[in-house]
Write a protein that binds this DNA or RNA. Structure first.
Lengths: 204, 204
DNA sequence: CACGAATTGAACACGAGTGTTCAATCAAGG
DNA sequence: CCTTGATTGAACACTCGTGTTCAATTCGTG
């Protein structure tokens, strides 16, 4: 999974593209070989199975995004601002890289690594925001809230991918709605959701 | 599509079950025939294609749910109460009939009839609630809001299907969060989301 | 009870994808 | 320039699903 040789890297990247546009089940070895610019036999000698390939691609994507978002949070202490930015990062990125967006949209609900990426990021901030009085909700609602947040982000990504909304509008709207749902006063929610969004940091 | 003979009805019902549990692409004619308790040849002489069969099943399901929810709204004038109940109807039904829930969860985002079911129901109430001052949002946010609502309901259905939450909790939480996002005051949102939920009316 | 329509289930010819093998070819470092 | 390891692409045997046909049968209705 770690330390891929160049051929394996090409195969993984090709797999990412194909999974994003066709879904797991429509990708066959022949397509994959062609997309990677490699012979069929090479694919078989470089991957174990489609399953493990998909798992590797998904968890790599989750890891990369998680790290970049975390890094950007170093400079922000307000949990509400972090949440709003996090939401908008996802939506902006889906717009800037529509394959990335399609991948997330297709698999975020069903894949454990991707679900984990969403929820681990948000949980700590949700709890700290609650105890600092920034949010108003009951702790038993945490799971419902996490679900609402990730679902809304996915829905919003869908909207952007389909071209029904710009990422700016959709991202700010979604962040604002989520903050409101968490009990942040209306004007404040709007303000937090519309500040200038910084660039997503690169890693290593 | 209308007026199915008994054999066609059996096939459609079997298709519903299979689509719900295996997804569109994993259903083949043989499975379908067996599930319907019918010979392979009979399936071929009773459906045009898998595509049209799926479309028929989905739109039938959308129509049925839409009518029942609409009927239940006759006795409610408050748009916020209607919305809260509508959300909870979906979530409760997904719990009571997990195949129905699985079907919705799998296809609500990708199928036009199902998307329509969600949005047409909500749009008018959203707008009337806005003009009556029950909600606070900007009209340009309507699409983002519809997306947030339907995504949240789907996420919540997932939670219930997976057994992470009861339908009661999940339904009330989701309804409450949505109302808050729309600008309904916190205590009022909670109250509206936790009233006794009536039975969903039958049709014809 | 007899007739026509629907259903049955087996048979056939296909196409598509899989997993595996292997001799030929290539590329790069010693 | 030679060796070694990876890559190539064609070939093989196999499975599964499709779409279609059709004689035999069942079933419902008049």
């Amino acid at each position: 999974m770690q330390s891929l040789n160049p051929t394996q890297r090409r195969i993984h990247q090709a797999a990412f593209r194909l999974f994003a546009e066709k879904g797991t089940l429509q990708v066959n070895i022949l397509d994959l070989a062609q997309e990677a610019g490699v012979a069929r036999g090479t694919v078989y000698s470089n991957i174990e199975s489609m399953e493990t390939l998909f798992e590797a691609v998904a968890s790599q994507l989750a890891k990369e995004m998680h790290e970049r978002v975390s890094k950007s949070f170093n400079s922000l202490s307000d949990p509400a601002q972090r949440l709003a930015n996090g939401i908008r990062f996802f939506i902006r990125r889906a717009h800037e890289d529509s394959q990335w967006g399609a991948f997330i949209h297709k698999f975020a609900m069903s894949n454990a690594s991707l679900r984990e990426m969403f929820s681990s990021q948000a949980t700590t901030d949700l709890l700290s925001g609650l105890s600092s009085g920034r949010y108003r909700f009951q702790q038993e609602q945490l799971l419902s809230i996490l679900t609402m947040i990730s679902s809304s982000v996915l829905g919003s990504i869908f909207l952007v991918l389909e071209g029904h909304k710009t990422w700016r509008e959709s991202g700010s709207d979604t962040a604002e709605l989520v903050l409101r749902a968490l009990g942040v006063p209306l004007e404040e929610a709007k303000a937090l959701a519309t500040v200038e969004l910084p660039a997503l940091p690169l890693i290593d």
